[in-house]
């Protein structure tokens, strides 16, 4: 505990964990109930292209990546809804092309890419004040959008066709949801990295869904779980000297597995 007050980077890590958990509790719940897991994976990997772009032009990686991640999200959304290419194929293409673009752009820039590994797998211990400011701002945007459009999102996720009949502008709302996913990916990059993002989107929300039948409660529970996982990962990383992002995901995965086993055990022997 004393380490917490002693080291600034730990305080920053804690703040980052809190902000990331809020975002992935809220947006992860939508991802899970609307079954957008694969799309989210595509967006998060495509965002790596944006990181390469930001790095190539010498922009701050968190800020430079925002327009690109929105573009990737709407690109995937547009392709999957309109084109003749089947949706999962389109996502797969953007997934890999985004990654490849990032790698090429980073290797084009002369010199050593300092924190490449950190963007791929996260490094919560190197989160700085500017990162935190961006994360807080993006979180604010997510919360505002969720509060204002809560019913529209609910209608879209529950029954999209009916939502259209009652006048919800589903195309717009769907794109807004994809934008929230993209923004959450940006928030989570520093915590678990683009490759592991999908775990924090899905695991806390999936556990939370089994515990409640209210979407609002599911979001709150998922946020709490995500926070516990990130804290646990941080602690494991601190004591065992392991990468925090991977430790977080492994911890979340283990809890998810135990939870599933326990649930099937109780439902079998009740």
């Amino acid at each position: 505990m004393s380490a917490l007050f002693q080291y600034q980077f730990l305080r920053h890590a804690l703040a980052a964990a809190l902000l990331a958990s809020l975002a992935c509790g809220v947006v992860g719940s939508y991802v899970v109930v609307k079954k957008l897991v694969f799309i989210s994976g595509g967006i998060s990997h495509a965002v790596f292209g944006g990181l390469g772009l930001a790095y190539f032009f010498g922009l701050h990686p968190m800020i430079g990546v925002i327009p690109f991640s929105l573009l990737a999200a709407w690109g995937i959304g547009g392709i999957s809804r309109r084109s003749r290419v089947s949706e999962d194929a389109a996502i797969g293409v953007l997934w890999a092309v985004g990654m490849a673009l990032g790698v090429v752009l980073i290797s084009l820039r002369p010199g050593y890419a300092p924190d490449l590994f950190g963007y791929l797998f996260g490094n919560i211990l190197t989160v700085g004040r500017p990162d935190l400011a961006v994360m807080a701002l993006l979180n604010g945007a997510i919360i505002v959008a969720t509060v204002v459009f809560y019913r529209d999102f609910l209608a879209l996720c529950f029954d999209e066709e009916f939502a259209r009949v009652v006048g919800v502008r589903t195309g717009l709302i769907y794109n807004l949801l994809l934008a929230l996913i993209a923004v959450t990916v940006v928030i989570l990059i520093r915590v678990v990295g683009v490759i592991l993002v999908i775990a924090l989107f899905t695991i806390p929300a999936s556990i939370a869904r089994r515990l409640t039948s209210s979407l609002k409660l599911m979001m709150a529970l998922a946020a709490v779980l995500a926070f516990l996982f990130t804290l646990g990962g941080l602690w494991i990383s601190w004591t065992a000297d392991l990468p925090a992002g991977a430790a977080t995901v492994l911890l979340a995965g283990a809890v998810f597995g135990c939870f599933g086993l326990a649930q099937s055990f109780f439902s079998t022997f009740r």
Binding site: S29, V33, R151, L154, F158, V166, G167, T212, S214, L217
Partner: peptide, 19 residues
């Protein structure tokens, strides 16, 4: 409709008022 969707009957019916 997803049987596991976290929505109560009341909330589901309330969506009919969105228009």
């Amino acid at each position: 409709l997803d049987r596991r969707f976290p929505i109560s009957v009341r909330e589901a019916v309330l969506l009919g008022r969105l228009g």
